[in-house]
Simulated scan of single mutants.
Amino acid sequence: MLKKLPKENMGTSNLGWLQSRFHFSFAEYRNPENINFGVLRVLNDDIIHANSGFDLHPHSNMEIISYIVNGEISHKDSMGNEEVLKAGEVQYLSAGDGIYHSEHNKSNKDLRLLQIWIVPPKQSLPRLYGSYKYTPSQKENKLLKIVSSLEGDSKVRIYQDVNIYVSQLEKAKSLDFKIEKNRQVYFVQIEGSSFVNSLELKDSDAMQIVKEENLHIEAISNSHFLFIEMNEQ
Rank of each mutant, 00 (worst) to 15 (best):
K4V: 15
K4I: 15
E8I: 14
E8F: 02
N9P: 01
N9E: 14
N14G: 00
N14S: 11
L15C: 01
G16D: 04
S20W: 05
F26P: 01
R30H: 11
N31G: 03
E33R: 09
N36V: 09
G38N: 10
L40K: 02
I47H: 08
I47P: 02
I48D: 01
S52M: 06
F54T: 10
D55M: 08
H75C: 01
S78W: 08
N81D: 11
E83T: 13
V84L: 00
K86M: 08
L93N: 06
S94M: 03
D97A: 13
I99T: 09
H101R: 10
E103W: 13
N108R: 13
K122V: 02
S124P: 03
S124H: 14
G130M: 09
Y134A: 03
L143Y: 12
I146F: 06
I146S: 04
S148G: 12
Y159N: 02
Y165C: 01
A172M: 05
K181H: 13
N182S: 11
N182H: 13
R183N: 05
F187Y: 15
F187Q: 02
S194P: 00
F195S: 11
L199A: 04
E200M: 12
L201N: 09
S204K: 11
A206G: 15
H216G: 00
E218R: 05
A219Y: 08
A219D: 07
Q233N: 10
